[in-house]
Write a protein that binds this DNA or RNA. Structure first.
Ligand SMILES: [Zn+2]
Ligand SMILES: [Zn+2]
Length: 524
DNA sequence: ATTCAAGGCCAG
DNA sequence: CTGGCCTTGAAT
């Protein structure tokens, strides 16, 4: 008679032991303190498959990994996945998941690291802060779409290839989408700072006395780092520590190594979690691309990608989205937005960056798009085949790149990439260099060029200035006359052709930069 | 000992 | 199929 109602209570069987030693059920990590779901915008539940997502999207993605057959789109192939409308279409939901970087390979286990937690807190904070404008989505407003979309679509196809990984491109056109994207929400990201520096990089409080306090036995952390960072070219593993200990009074020894460590960590976590594929995979794809291009040219002659003018022409006259550019636009915007957000997470770790004025911060970010993107992808430029893999599944030929904008753009990129490749930088070194670049600008009309050697002086000073975090000492010779060795800014400060690399200078600078970072107290 | 995320589980 | 909750096991 006892129908034995299935008490599945999988866990609630604690009836018997009144002894109970489990007082606190581990505070369920305040959900509000986590970044929102990157897929559907709903409150996040942690970091899943390499991305901050909600419980639902996590589950969905997991199911999708098992699933054999493909999903079918329930809309017209371009469903918008947003808060509240998660389930409208599994196909597009999955695509969005992938677009924001979810992947089986990106899974992380175990505890958060120092750096990661820092970001999360920051981001959660920004999310909590009251949105100035009632417009949440903000990224791009439909109302202005008729205009902006048209304008953007032109530059978009340029962006498209490279912008995916990090914002890149070289044209003035880029200003358009970028400034649009860079508005409200991301300003907020940049704003509320302080937090990081104080809670985790309390350089100000420690500053003068690198007191032997030794919060932790961090000392042994250093070797690990240096072994990664330094090839044979410079600084022996010990130099970092010793140099700092003896010569530097501005910061603790653990400080610098942790800063570097955090930079690398954040970068790994944010910037290119899925950009790393095995060389074999890349090569394979590049060969395929090469072959495809060759065949295409044989059959159709010189390749002619639908230019933006042509596209706009068609769009204007017929209103048709010929090749689906606008279709992918919305999603693309979100991907770009994400990459910017990630980049911001990265630069905020750089000591001192936060203390720049908001304007300068934005300037630096914007001005460094190209360099940044190149540093992120130079390794996958294949000089011999003249193809470059910008991102997983995105390989372009030199011709394609050229046809996207200026004739020389592609060529220049290849040259730069090649020059950097010759340096044989380790991945970690590249990251550090990226950080240096992030605070380096040739612009002279910044709010506080004086305050941070960063902006106008030579990179070497910046490197040290930045990495020592609190040493705001203006370069003794931060004279305006000296131009950054990194790049040559085209006289026309106009947005157009912005910068030209000089392979030679870039090379030596890189070497120097890396060196000074590893050894810290390098004399010029 | 804690802090997290992957997976399992199952009611809706 | 969804998504909330739990268990498991890894990383710190
Ligand atoms: Zn979600
Ligand atoms: Zn769909």
């Amino acid at each position: 008679m006892n129908t034995t109602p299935p008490k599945k209570r999988r866990k609630g069987n604690i009836d018997e032991d009144a002894g109970l030693q489990k007082p606190v059920r581990t505070a369920p990590t305040n959900t509000s303190l986590l970044p929102p779901c990157r897929v559907c915008q709903e409150p996040g539940a942690g970091f899943h498959y390499g991305v901050n997502t909600c419980e639902a999207c996590k589950g969905f993605f997991r199911r999708s990994l098992v699933r054999k057959e493909d999903y079918k789109c329930l809309g017209n192939g371009n469903c918008n996945i947003h808060a509240g409308k998660r389930k409208i279409c599994p196909k597009c939901r999955l695509e969005k998941c992938l677009a924001v970087g979810m992947s089986k390979e990106a899974i992380k286990t175990g505890r958060y690291t120092h750096a990661k937690r820092t970001q999360d807190i920051l981001e959660a904070k920004k999310a909590l802060s009251p949105m100035p404008d009632a417009v949440p989505k903000s990224t791009l407003q439909p109302e202005s779409s008729s205009m902006s979309t048209t304008v953007l679509s032109g530059s978009l196809n340029q962006e498209f290839c490279a912008a995916n990984e990090e914002q890149s491109s070289d044209h003035d056109l880029t200003r358009q989408p970028f400034s649009l994207l860079m508005t409200s929400s991301q300003h907020n990201l940049l704003e509320n700072q302080g937090l990081v520096d104080e809670s985790y990089f309390s350089a100000s409080s420690i500053s003068s006395t690198s007191s032997p306090v030794s919060h932790q036995p961090v000392a042994n952390d250093t070797p690990r780092l240096s072994s990664q960072v330094s090839p044979s070219s410079f600084a022996s593993p010990l130099s970092l520590e010793s140099a700092l200990g003896s010569n530097s009074e501005e910061y603790g020894e653990g400080e610098l190594s942790r800063i570097i460590h955090d930079l690398i960590e954040v970068h790994e976590h944010n910037i290119c979690p899925d950009t790393r594929f095995t060389p074999e995979e890349v090569l394979e794809e590049q060969k395929a691309c090469y072959e495809a291009c060759r065949l295409k040219e044989e059959m159709f002659g010189p390749m002619q990608r639908l230019s933006k003018e042509e596209y706009q022409e068609v769009f204007r006259s017929t209103g048709l989205d010929v090749d689906g550019r606008q279709m992918i636009f919305n999603d693309l915007v979100e991907v770009i937005d994400l990459s910017i957000r990630r980049y911001i997470s990265f630069v905020k770790i750089i000591p001192g960056f936060s203390s720049l004025t908001l304007n300068d911060q934005i300037r630096l970010i914007k001005d460094n798009r190209f360099e940044n993107a190149l540093l992120g992808t130079y390794h996958a430029y294949n000089w011999d085949l003249k193809v470059a893999t910008i991102r997983r599944g995105k390989t372009f030929s030199l011709n394609e790149m050229n046809s996207l904008s200026n004739e020389t753009v592609g060529q220049r990129r290849f040259e730069c990439a090649n020059a950097i490749q010759k340096l044989g930088l380790s991945h970690e070194e590249m990251i550090l260099f990226k950080a240096v670049v992030a605070v380096t600008s040739g612009a002279e009309d910044l709010d506080e060029p004086h305050k941070h050697a960063v902006v106008t002086s030579t990179p070497d000073k910046e490197t040290q200035g930045r990495l020592t975090s609190d040493s705001m000492q203006p370069c003794d010779d931060a004279s305006p006359g000296r131009q950054p060795a990194l790049r040559v800014i085209d006289v026309t400060h106009g947005p157009g052709r912005r910068l030209l690399y000089k392979a030679g200078q870039l090379t030596s600078l890189l070497l120097f930069t890396v060196d000074s970072m590893g050894g810290s107290t390098t004399s010029v």
